[in-house]
Simulated scan of single mutants.
Amino acid sequence: MATTKITTPTTPHPHTREEDITKDELSLVRSYLLLTFIHKVFERDCRVIGKSGLFKTPQLYMELVSTATKKTSIMLQEVTRELASHNLKITTVRQDQQGVEAQYSCRGYQGESRILWPSFRREMMLRMRAYLGLATELSIVTREESLEQLALSI
């Protein structure tokens, strides 16, 4: 579950109100967070696959993950462009035991968006599966184990 907190601007803008921060803009913040984390996970996994010595054909798996990494990179660039076009800047990203938080400024207003781990992990896994070209349904047997392992590696 994501929560959002909006505060008043540090320097007043005469034509900007709190409600001018739209759901679409908050969705951009969420996508930025997810894509940033997913990109880091894919990069790490690609390195581990290459160095592990456990795969008979590591180049195949590295190619699969590398392709997904490139997709996330392109999407992250697009989200970053969209953030700039909305005059929205992510100022701080933090993670703690409860979840991930982004502080941002949007047309002079300071705000924060917080996504709790269960929701964040679930959406990460769904997006990662899509970027890898896999079915979007998680396996019931391994879902909890995968989510726990993902939390430890972020």
Rank of each mutant, 00 (worst) to 15 (best):
D96I: 10
R127N: 10
A130T: 10
C106G: 04
L134G: 00
A135P: 13
S85M: 14
I115R: 00
V141H: 09
M128D: 02
V100L: 08
W117F: 02
I90F: 01
R122K: 12
Y131K: 12
L88P: 02
I90P: 01
Y104D: 11
R94V: 14
W117C: 00
T91Y: 11
E137T: 13
S119F: 12
V100D: 05
H86V: 04
T91A: 12
E123W: 09
A130Q: 10
H86G: 04
I115A: 01
V93M: 08
R122Q: 12
Y131E: 15
R122S: 10
Q97N: 13
T92C: 08
L116I: 06
M128I: 02
Q95N: 08
R114T: 12
G99Y: 02
N87W: 01
C106Y: 06
L132Y: 09
T142F: 06
R121T: 05
Q98G: 02
A102V: 07
A135C: 13
E101R: 14
L138N: 12
K89V: 13
R121F: 07
T91L: 14
S119M: 14
R143C: 05
S113N: 00
I115C: 05
Q95I: 01
A102S: 08
R143K: 07
Q98N: 05
S119K: 10
E123N: 09
K89E: 14
E123L: 14
S85D: 12
G133D: 06
D96R: 08
L138W: 13
V100M: 09
V141N: 10
E112M: 09
K89N: 13
G111M: 03
A135E: 15
S139V: 13
M124A: 10
N87F: 03
N87A: 03
R121D: 07
I115W: 06
L88W: 02
Q95P: 04
S105V: 07
Q95D: 04
L116W: 05
Q110C: 01
G99T: 04
S85T: 09
G133A: 01
A130M: 09
T91G: 13
P118D: 04
G108L: 05
N87P: 04
E112Q: 11
E101H: 11
T142M: 04
R121C: 07
S85G: 10
